[in-house]
């Protein structure tokens, strides 16, 4: 597994852990904690999306010539997840357990099947296509460092 696959997959795991902690806090009605963890989770996911949408996907599209394919599907799923992240955030602010559980369950499944497609298919393709791209390597390194310092 090359650095891109490894770092980006590892970041999925970090986001999952934050999600689980936020959900556990909501289950226990610890709303202040839940709000903070939801914010952390949302921030981590949005940062991950930004690196993909601004650096990795454009580089992959330029290198492979595939514009309407996998990256397009990933972008539209990011948009779906952004809506659910907002709903999750709003539910935590409103201390609304039912709304939080609704958004969390849907978001979790969407996020997991999305990660599965990236980890099994898209990242390996990116490893192959972008192994020597300095901009991509710098962004991926920055993400890895950010995660290590978090």
């Amino acid at each position: 597994m090359s650095v891109l696959s490894q770092t980006m997959s590892h970041d999925h795991g970090r986001c999952d852990a934050l999600f689980a902690d936020a959900e556990a806090a909501a289950e226990q009605a610890q709303w202040a904690r839940c709000q903070a963890l939801t914010q952390d989770f949302r921030g981590a996911v949005l940062r991950h999306f930004a690196i993909e949408e601004e650096v990795i996907f454009p580089a992959f599209e330029a290198r492979s010539g595939m514009r309407g394919g996998p990256t397009q599907v990933m972008r539209s799923e990011h948009a779906q997840m952004r809506t659910l992240l907002d709903a999750l955030d709003a539910a935590s602010q409103a201390n609304d357990n039912a709304a939080f559980a609704d958004a969390a369950e849907t978001l979790l499944l969407l996020m997991q099947q999305h990660n599965m497609k990236e980890e099994n298919i898209l990242y390996p393709m990116c490893d192959q296509a972008l192994g020597d791209d300095p901009d991509v390597a710098a962004s991926v390194d920055a993400l890895a460092e950010g995660a290590a310092n978090a």
Binding site: S64, M66, G68, G69, P70, V73, M74, K117, I121, M125, Q128, A129
Partner: peptide, 8 residues
């Protein structure tokens, strides 16, 4: 590279 689309 294999022409792959998740839309299928």
């Amino acid at each position: 590279m294999h022409a792959l689309s998740f839309e299928q």
